[in-house]
Computed example of a mutant assay.
Amino acid sequence: MASVPTARRIVRSKLREWGWESDGERARDVLLVLVELTTNAIRHASKPGDVVRVLVDETDGYCRIEVLDSRPDLPLLAVQADGDDEHGRGLLLVRSLAHAMGEELAATTKKVWVSVRIADVLARPRCL
């Protein structure tokens, strides 16, 4: 993905294609998680020229967002951010919206994934 806005536009379009309202509350949760994870990967886990990949799929009413970067260390979860802090709440916010969340490390890469509930009914699997 070239940028966070590009990733957001593509995923919003994919949600719409899958039949989810792209401006509904749960779709907004998916997009917020996407933006936070992608921004963190670009800002904290990559350098110029690195590739950050975003994968999104939907199965049985859950949307799974995966962000892969080239830094094999775990993301730091802020324990507490002060009221005036401009940073430090992103992963806390992601965790509050997530049904499930995890990280997978390899020798030179990391994948952070989050599953967000977007429907109360079972749906057929779809991939991006």
Rank of each mutant, 00 (worst) to 15 (best):
R89F: 12
D82I: 03
S115T: 02
V121R: 15
L91Y: 01
G90E: 03
L77K: 01
H44N: 09
V56G: 05
G83I: 09
L105D: 08
D82C: 04
K47I: 11
M101H: 10
V67W: 01
A100T: 11
E86G: 15
V94I: 05
S46C: 12
P48Q: 09
L74Q: 04
V79D: 05
E103V: 14
K111A: 11
E86L: 15
D73L: 04
L76M: 03
D85G: 03
D120P: 05
R89P: 00
D57Y: 14
V67A: 01
A119G: 14
V51Q: 12
L93A: 03
V112T: 06
S46V: 08
A78S: 04
R64Y: 11
S46K: 12
V54N: 01
P75S: 01
E58D: 12
D82T: 06
V56N: 06
D82V: 04
L97A: 02
S115H: 04
Q80R: 09
G61D: 12
H99S: 10
V112C: 01
A107F: 10
A81Q: 01
S46P: 10
V79T: 08
L68W: 06
S70K: 08
D120E: 15
P72V: 00
V114F: 00
G90N: 04
R95P: 02
L105T: 06
L92C: 05
D60M: 13
G61V: 11
V79M: 06
V116S: 00
I42Q: 11
L55A: 14
D120S: 14
A98F: 00
E104D: 10
V79K: 07
I118R: 05
V114Q: 00
P48E: 10
